[in-house]
Design a protein around this nucleic acid. Structure first.
Lengths: 114, 114
DNA sequence: GGGTCGTGTGTAGGCTGTCTACATGAAAGC
DNA sequence: GCTTTCATGTAGACAGCCTACACACGACCC
């Protein structure tokens, strides 16, 4: 699945990924891939700018760590981020109901199947 | 709801709207508003370019009519359009399953809770 | 006769967010 | 030593939706 289809929903996915535990960028990509059953494979050039965007919007905080000898920037959901995630969930519910209704929708009125 | 969130799904909605009967642009906007329960209110500057895009992609055909004294361009779903709609439905199913799954989320599964 | 509202189609230019491609560097494995 | 994996990041291209505007005709009211 292309991230292109996510337009406007990627932020929510990232926030949701960080909901239970802080992660660094690379791990976020892996987590999304794992939790989607391999369906999502986001390029780094998509995720890193998104993280900086979310941080500058105040939804994430970041801290550098070097424990493993590798420098990692670990992102944590802020209070505003939690709030934003809740809002995003609600928006998604509306969105998927509307689109699903329109696409799946309208029990037929058309010529039938056998 | 903003059409901005539709990024990449608008085409599918338009095709679905035309599935059962041909409509002209203005009527498509009204139909989408009605069938979404007023949730969708697309600006003409979004829909008309989309229609031309879909036509030049071969998914729609258009015919001018002037019955009421008003010139209308009525769009009809082509065979390729029907096929595309089916593909879009299938994509939507995957997409909403994945995003819904990630957002609604997985009861944790995170390593290391105390 | 003039103003305004609803219907109807369309273009121009801007903005946002994703894409591809590239650059950098350290650790792990061969 | 060399390649792969982990890890972060930037630059520029591109698609698609946005706002704002322009045009035209009918109906209605004053």
């Amino acid at each position: 699945m292309k991230a292109d289809a996510l337009r406007g929903h990627l932020d929510a996915l990232i926030l949701a990924t960080l909901e239970h535990s802080p992660l660094h960028g690379y791990a976020i990509i892996e987590a999304l891939a794992a939790r989607s059953g391999g369906e999502l494979d986001l390029p780094t050039g998509t995720v890193y700018p998104a993280l900086r965007r979310l941080e500058s919007a105040g939804y994430l905080r970041s801290d550098w760590s070097e424990e493993t000898g590798r420098r990692r920037r670990t992102y944590t959901l802020s209070r505003a981020g939690h709030k934003q995630l809740a809002a995003a969930r609600s928006e998604w519910t509306t969105f998927s109901r509307v689109v699903g209704g329109l696409l799946g929708g309208i029990p037929d009125a058309g010529p039938g199947f056998p």
